[in-house]
Design a protein around this nucleic acid. Structure first.
Lengths: 374, 374
DNA sequence: GGAAGTTTTGAATCGTGAG
DNA sequence: TCTCACGATTCAAAACTTC
């Protein structure tokens, strides 16, 4: 039985044509996710309802009203309901995700701790928590607490050993050649981006497109399928379309769906050349060290040294190195052997002498790539 | 039996002289907390183990070794074990706290979601989550994730309706006359503040004093009792002593205790005049606007404006204002009248020109208080 | 002694793929 | 499932060294 189910799921996953791509599915997010095939989605972005402690009104996951809580039992009852709802949709999300897919969930202190605990309990592996610092948060009018100036996002893979997409180079480029940190600053959604109808905002918690832009750019590839089970007014869909990703949205409210469809129809995709600049260097052609020797960029017999000239090694005709202490092999192997280190990047460790200065052999690789790339 | 125990505890709570103030209690934090009387502590700051679950060894790109947290006290077999531990100490903390006390807990994504869920389940009421943005975090050496550049703190009262101390005015003053936000930036603990023995750090996760300074300043009054059940090298005790608060610490490791005792003994309390500037405005003597005029801080005839120079008003000799549109009266009355608003805090609404810049008249009140308080 | 350059280090869940 | 080769990867602050 299990075998059959697995077989069926695998078949569906291999036929993504059955996925309702670039569409909004109307209905309950758990029911709609159940109808999607297993392991079919590359990324999930979820902005679930907070539903807790707000305005004294409490709602169950099914939308029914919870009477005002007056004692501890009711309070626990409410948390339990919220937890059950959270675990139900997170479990479906886990089933739908490809094995190398990731999930993002956003929340505030009202719900994010419960969501995070559920994420861990369901076997997801948290990769980062990200803080969205609001440039222009609403002040605390009564002066009773700190200004609530941030929201929290959780980024998780399907499990501890799971692979995942992270466009490290794109993020570093976006952050002015420094590693992207876990704290991001964006203004809250307003201005022309904020959807309004008759002057009234369509959705109370519309997220800024810049936030989704960074998330999709960091964790998906062009053509990947992104699901948003709490679609709202479709920020995820609009940004996905712009970035050349496929999307699916689930939403219950007709007003939100109408606004989202209009918005996404108007969104303009970036052209392919713009998307191409976001590729990671891993997709660059690899250059073997030996190719540099073959092509005369470095003559056999040249002596290489580290920056402090503590160690040296000679370049041999086949692109291997030979050190005076007897170590032989690749630039990486000899580098790690002479240092007694577990690993070494030979490209940055070994240097050659040019015009009286030491340059890393990686510079030669870049020269070669520039000369040979079309 | 239970009744007797409660009776004893209640008695102890009414006789706080029995509290082991300004001392480190050696032993397990749960056992030691059980020995403390109920409702006896004004604030708890807790820096529990994070349950990091680190894998193998990590090396920097230059081959050097990363000194990770490998201590036994951070190891838990499963999430269930960690949760049981967390709920046990949080429950004792709840019993010990006064009804108007608050608790602070710090953690990272490894543990903070579990801690936060437990805090809510035990009946605490979360007031804020605070993000400590590290000015100089450790980079992600492998380029596999976002730089983990922050930690999260939870601030909670004993329950939804509980009162608590929040020195709003102190925080606003500390933040250059803007409301203190939920994201704080500090460097990690280093320099002369970092405790070392024979060149080796005494504790792997010593917290910066600036962090505790802000917390104690925000949420306690002079003389309040602060408990730290994971005392480590005593940052909480050192800052509490500096700020004129009483403290208690619980710690298992003798090495940490020895370092903490030496450190706290060397800490110098601020003198009372410095502490006085941190008082909340409610306990400050009120200053009438007219007193500032009387004392020459603002000359009659001076023009006041709002930040955007949309409205102006003239200072009269009796401390009342007069606006060109005909409104007369107190700084608050004229402020609300010109705006057509139901109310207005004239101290922050009206500004005067000084050195080419606009400053709120509240700044003059603060100057006056500093000059006249004993 | 001070300026300038070098080294060290911090709560870290830190590869991939062929054979 | 294990082993091995290949190869990709770091920021800010403080401490330390050199000139």
């Amino acid at each position: 039985m299990e075998k059959v189910v697995r077989g069926r799921r695998a078949t569906l996953a291999e036929t993504p044509a059955v996925l309702p791509l670039d569409q909004i599915l109307r209905g309950d997010c758990i029911a709609q996710m159940k109808a999607l095939p297993a392991k079919s989605v590359d990324m999930i972005f979820a902005d679930p309802p907070y539903n807790l402690q707000l305005g004294g009104e409490l709602f169950r996951p099914d939308g029914s009203h919870v009477d005002a809580v007056t004692d501890e039992w009711d309070k626990f009852d409410t948390f339990a309901h919220y937890d059950a709802f959270t675990r139900a949709w997170l479990a479906e999300a886990h089933r739908i995700l490809k094995d190398d897919g990731t999930i993002w969930v956003i929340g505030s202190y009202h719900n994010i701790f419960r969501v995070g605990a559920a994420v861990q309990d369901l076997g997801y592996w948290i990769l980062n928590d990200i803080v969205w610092r609001k440039a222009n948060p609403m002040p605390n009018f009564r002066g009773t607490r700190f200004t609530n100036a941030h929201e929290t996002l959780i980024w998780a893979s399907k499990g501890e050993k799971a692979k995942y997409t992270f466009n490290y180079r794109s993020m570093k480029t976006l952050n002015d050649e420094l590693q992207m940190r876990s704290d991001w600053e964006f203004p809250i959604c307003g201005g022309g981006e904020r959807l309004k109808k008759d002057g009234v905002k369509v959705h109370p918690t519309q997220k800024p497109e810049a936030l989704l832009y960074r998330i999709l750019l960091a964790c998906t590839k062009p053509g990947d399928v992104v699901l948003d089970p709490f679609f709202g007014t479709g920020t995820t869909g609009a940004v996905a379309k712009r970035l050349g990703r496929r999307w699916m949205g689930i939403e219950r409210e007709g007003d939100y769906i109408a606004a989202a469809e209009e918005r996404i129809a108007a969104a303009l995709p970036l052209d392919e050349s713009a998307l191409a600049t976001m590729q990671s260097p891993k997709s660059q052609p690899k250059v073997a060290f030996g190719v540099l020797v073959e092509n005369g960029y470095l003559a056999p017999g040249t002596m290489l040294v580290d920056t402090k000239r503590r160690w040296q090694a000679m370049v041999r005709a086949d692109g291997s190195l030979s050190s005076p202490c007897g170590a032989n092999g690749s630039i990486h192997k000899v580098g790690s052997t002479v240092q007694g280190a577990p690993a070494c990047n030979g490209w940055t460790f070994w240097h050659y002498e040019a015009e009286g200065a030491l340059k890393p052999i990686d510079a030669l690789r870049q020269t070669y790539l520039l000369a040979t790339q079309p």
